[in-house]
């Protein structure tokens, strides 16, 4: 049985209590994009400033949610700030691979590695690996990333 310490790693609680990049950016020039988790009512608002090449020059987060969705958003913001579109795309795929790999196996399968995950260092984000043992919480962890992907798509459209 997975224990609470698998889910609530210290670094997650730290990002939850001291969220990074919390706030808003002026729109325009920033793009404002909202994400919802219809299951629990969590909502996240991202403010994205893009550089000339479409990379994320600056990011702010507002909204409300559980410790997993809030800390995941905080970690994501730290990981993607100042990164190019290509780098963010790799990070996103690596993170989602980490989140979805166990989705069908539900419990255990700790040794399984993402099959087509890019070889990227996830850093702090690794702490969220334990979330996959709590399948109903995976959507909490991926909310910020899905919202970011939506923002990048809107910006490039």
């Amino acid at each position: 049985m997975p224990g609470l310490e698998d889910l609530y790693r210290e670094i997650i609680l730290d990002h939850y209590r001291n969220p990074r990049n919390r706030g808003e950016l002026e729109t325009p020039p920033a793009l404002r994009v909202e994400g919802f988790n219809p299951l629990c009512g969590d909502e996240i608002v991202l403010y994205l400033d893009f550089d000339a090449n479409g990379g994320v020059a600056d990011i702010r987060i507002s909204g409300q949610g559980c410790s997993i969705s809030q800390s995941s958003a905080s970690m994501m913001s730290a990981a993607v700030k100042g990164k190019s579109v290509a780098e963010i795309d790799e990070l996103t795929r690596a993170f989602k691979a980490m989140m979805s790999i166990h989705e069908n196996t539900l419990e255990g399968a700790e040794t399984a590695e993402p099959i087509d995950a890019p070889d990227v260092k996830l850093g702090d984000l690794e702490a969220l690996r334990g979330v996959v043992k709590f399948p109903v919480r995976i959507k909490c962890a991926t909310l910020a990333w899905n919202t970011l992907a939506q923002g990048i798509e809107e910006a490039s459209a």
């Binding site: 609470l4 609530y8 009512g41 410790s67």
Partner: peptide
């Protein structure tokens, strides 16, 4: 605390409550 976090810990104590809207 967020309801999701509450119900997650309650579940470890076998207490089933609903969290959400």
């Amino acid at each position: 605390l967020h309801p999701h976090d509450i119900s997650q810990v309650l579940d470890q104590h076998a207490v089933c409550v609903r969290a959400g809207h």
